[in-house]
Structures are given as structure tokens and as C-alpha cells.
Amino acid sequence: MPTKDANAEPSFRTMIQVDMEIASFLSNWAHCDYISSYLARTISHNRPDSVLFSNLFSSALNELLEVTFRTRHSGGALECRLSRLGETDRIELTFACSREEHTFLEAAVARVQGADRQARYLSSLSGDVAPSRDMMLLELTVNYNATLRLEEVDDDMVKIVVDLPLGGLAN
């Protein structure tokens, strides 16, 4: 008789997935806006306040796509999958990138888990330089209560996994 692993992660149900060639994605900055707005609207209908949810989810997804846009890629495809478990929506962004970029993303994701994240976010806001990709990821944890992790798919592919607990929000 099969036994259930008590530590197994509850299963998220896939709702929608968009795949596109990285070259196509990078051909126009507005793709970040198009994809985030379209996907947010598509998965919003059964949330308590669909318009509020769609707007917040679009904000968060757009930042992730902008981070991806600014990453140095090594060709291949971009895969954006959205799945849901209860009030949490999961974004999985999978793409090819250089080893150097991989290392950078790994460090950035580790940094946003730090206890000092709020202070670091405020410090980056008051700094003179334009917002870094670090700051964009940090903002997701500070303002959207997101949790982030990085998974290695294979040698030159990474997957950013972001869980957003926005589903129960309503005015």
C-alpha cells in the first residue's frame, strides 16, 4: 500500500502556461506588460475581488518578467507557468541563462530571505542608483509577502519559483 509522504509539498494545480522563444520575448519591452496583464486577468475570475487580485498579481508578475528581461540569456525558450493551491498562486519562470547569471540569481534569491530585508529594501529606495534586480526581487517579499526560491532544471536552465498569497484579499 503506498504511503503518503508527510513532508511532500501539497500539489499546486496548473492553470495556464505561456511559452515563447527568448528572442521573441526580448524583442519588445512591452511583452512584460502584455503577458502579466493577460495572465493576471485570466486567473482572477474566481478570486473574492477579481479586479483587485488581477491588479496586484499583474504588478508582481510584471516585476518578475522585467527581471527576466534584464537577465543575460543564452537563447532557448521562456516558460511561464501559473498554478494555484488555495489562496496561494505560484509563478514558475524557466529560462536558459549563463552560469554567471545563475550564480547571481542564486545569491539574489538567498538575500531576499534575510531577516534584514525590510531595512535593505528601504535603503535601496533611498539610494541614488536605479533599482537593481535584487531590489525588484526584494520588493516582492516586502510588499507582496512572496516567497522565492531558485531551482536548477539542468546545466544552463534555471527556474524561479514565486509563491504569492494574494488569493484571499478583498475590500
Partner: peptide, 17 residues
Amino acid sequence: LAQMNNTAFHAFARVII
């Protein structure tokens, strides 16, 4: 203001700060 990315937010916040 429905949407504002961090690039824009930082720029406007900078002016105000």
C-alpha cells in the same frame, strides 16, 4: 495609479525624497 513598475517608482520616489 493602477500600475507602476519599480523603475518608475524609484524615479518618482527619488524626486520626492
